[in-house]
Amino acid sequence: MNSSVIVFPGSNCDRDIAVALEKMQFKNQMVWHKESKLPKSDLIVVPGGFSYGDYLRSGAIAGKSLIINEVIKAADKGCLILGICNGFQILTETGLLKGVLLRNKNLRFINKDVNIKIINNETKFSNKYKKNQILKINIAHNEGNYFTNSNHLKILNNENLIAFKYCDKNGNINEDSNPNGSLENIAGIFNSKKNILGMMPHPERMMDNLISNTDGANLFLSLLK
């Protein structure tokens, strides 16, 4: 499977995701944001970091970059797109995913391992997980507080477009297990065609028991299926 990782000035999880993809046998290429053509890709990853130093709004400037036009075209043709953390923020700024990531409710940058629950395991990104499976996974963000209008929230629920929700270690989804104030504890969403996933947690950081755990590996294995 061919993958591309888009690199912006200020991206800082681009190497991590590349290592994760290569470990899972993806043929990966790094693509600089000034490129106007994408290599042939089955999967495009918009990585985490602080593209353009989060100037204006996180993801706003990267969302208008040259390469993003190509990402939008590829997405329309059904290419799989994964946006992680700042990548999720960028995808919302482009309009590929609806809603917005607001500042964390407690106004603090949060870097910690949290639990998330698999809500929809019937997608190309999540089929190797079990429904309601609980993962332990790292989050590291200042703007992860997902917000959308009530109409879109209804669609997210009715069409099963919520990928993950924050929970505690027993799987309880409530205010106490919500790290950033996100609407309905949402940690990741799909677009309506389910070929685009945006998520705040970092699966690429959970690929090796030596430094964390391997809870992120099944996301990549799902894509390879």
């Binding site: 204006l56 709004r57 706003a60 208008k64 700024e93 809603g99 917005v100 917000f147 959308t148």
Partner: peptide, 9 residues
């Protein structure tokens, strides 16, 4: 509309 404001919020 295109950049300075995010019209959703």
């Amino acid at each position: 509309k295109k950049l300075l404001a995010n019209m959703i919020i």
